[in-house]
Amino acid sequence: MKKFISLSLIILFLSIGNVFAHFQMIIPDTDVVTSNKHLNLKLKYIFMHPFEQNYMNMEEPIEAGVYFNGKKQIFTKSLKSYKINNLSAWKSTYKIKRPGDYIFYVIPKPYFEPAEEKFIQHITKVVVNAFYLENGWDNKIGLKAEIVPLTRPYGVWKGNTFRGVVLKDGKPVPFAEIEVELFNDKGIKAPNDTFITQVIKADANGVFTYSFPFAGWWGFAALMEDDKMIEKDGKKYPVELGAVFWLKVYDTK
């Protein structure tokens, strides 16, 4: 006997498949400062679906700052709001004063996602090197959730392989699931929706590996459940805690 799938069920499957990954982003105007013209480093803080180029509204972050030479500097109050497609994003300018590795981070407010019935909080990092002094790109900076790179996260070619370790409260997260996505500002077409968000898993030590097929900004979001829940309208919801890391990949000219 032939079996038929109802149209309503097909629509349901399609709607589930179209829930794309959310990514918190920090994008600096350069990942390696090589001249005085980039000493006033410009950073953008954006919440979006990066491959699909669909922006989302971002509330003012809980905390934004930079880790350099073993010290953390918080500059949340200096962030300025601006609009992308009539949605809120944030930006800042940071004065580079010394050579070395600067780890910029942001702790956003939890975002409620009705379709998934949970809050999302993606704690995000990006490393900027200044004048080629490599002195801390692999540092832990004490965030509740973070990815610590095991591969230097700048000077990366298309085809290179990146390794990192997922930490929660400073300890490795075994078999963490990591979503990987390209900031697709070049209009690359995906063969189907499975190509939009790549999915990999860490090993028993929380270590993961990924090789880059395209140049551009790439984001890694290691997902885990937070220990706390957040109440909304009299009901408690789980919190998806994300450790997010961004880096830029270059192509040959």
Rank of each mutant, 00 (worst) to 15 (best):
F23L: 08
F23S: 10
Q24W: 13
M25V: 08
M25W: 00
I26N: 09
P28M: 04
T30Q: 09
D31C: 02
V33G: 05
S35K: 13
S35I: 04
K37C: 01
K37S: 15
H38D: 15
N40H: 09
L41D: 07
K42C: 03
K42Y: 13
K44H: 12
Y45R: 01
Y45M: 13
F47H: 14
M48A: 12
H49V: 06
P50C: 06
E52W: 00
Q53G: 11
Q53L: 11
N54T: 15
Y55Q: 04
M56G: 00
M56V: 00
N57R: 10
M58V: 01
M58P: 02
M58Q: 12
E59T: 13
E60P: 02
E63I: 09
E63N: 03
A64K: 00
A64R: 03
A64C: 12
V66C: 14
V66P: 07
V66G: 03
Y67M: 04
F68G: 08
N69Q: 14
Q73F: 10
T76F: 07
K77L: 11
S78H: 10
K80M: 12
K80P: 02
K80W: 00
S81K: 15
I84D: 04
I84N: 04
L87Y: 05
S88C: 02
S88D: 15
A89W: 02
W90F: 11
K91P: 00
S92L: 07
T93P: 04
I96H: 07
K97Q: 14
K97T: 15
P99E: 09
D101R: 07
I103S: 14
F104Y: 08
Y105H: 11
V106P: 01
V106I: 15
I107C: 09
I107R: 10
I107M: 01
K109I: 06
K109G: 05
P110S: 05
Y111C: 01
F112W: 02
H122G: 15
V126M: 03
V126E: 10
V128N: 06
V128C: 06
N129S: 09
Y132A: 13
Y132L: 12
E134F: 05
G136M: 06
W137D: 12
D138V: 03
N139E: 13
K140C: 02
K140D: 10
I141P: 12
G142T: 05
K144I: 15
K144V: 13
A145D: 07
T151R: 07
R152L: 08
R152C: 10
Y154S: 06
Y154W: 12
V156Q: 06
